[in-house]
Amino acid sequence: MNIFVCLKQTPARDSVIRFADHGKRIDESGLTYELNEPDAFALEEGIRLKEENGGKVVVVSVGPERAIAVIREALAKGADRGILIENDESFQVDAFAIAKALAAVLSEESPDIVLTGLQADDLGFGQTGVILAELLNLPHASIVVKIVEISDGSIRVRKELESGWFQNIDMPLPALLTIQSGTNKPRYATLMGIKKAKTKPVEYYSIRDLGVEPLRSQTIENFYAPPKTKETQFFEGSSREAADKLAEKLKFEARIL
């Protein structure tokens, strides 16, 4: 099986986000980065598919040079080959351009299955996989929580629906799946894996050379902190003092004690 997994490098989950140029940009100076959380589950799903069905796992990322770290991480966990499509912009990008870049590279390959995370937790589009399926003319399922079975060139997956409902979907391969967080237990890289990763091939492209046009269909005019919709009463002091004040409020104002 030719398994492709798309990965994005995103700011670490608990990052404090600061602005620069009066909110025109995000200040990247203090940020650390990690593999986007849902993508870690997509990667694990891809590696398991290889273990069960044989084949190769190729990981592809669009991002600045630093995104090579998530490719190396994936190679250390068991992916066989990496592709980095370099794009200097971290936050002024839209999913359409990213999907076009991925499609330009993947259309030269012959994937049996393409996996993405269901969304990147920074920009929160949740679109890249769905658009990529369209551009590659593949059937797809989004918000997949389980690959139920693969047989005779078709695949059955379980998709999450709203409010705790699920549904199985059958479709022919090749196909694209966007994977939900929490669906498996992503493995850690072993020391051996990290060593081996150094010898695995990585190809580089630049998003401009791939002829992606336009690079931007949407522009973020400014970033800012969300306005509060409620007047929050904050309780300060030591933990005990704050807790006492909150308990008082719960009794006398919220009247729930």
Binding site: P11, Q218, F223
Partner: peptide, 11 residues
Amino acid sequence: LFQGKINADVT
């Protein structure tokens, strides 16, 4: 953006 930590105006 960022799971609700930030707002952005987009055109």
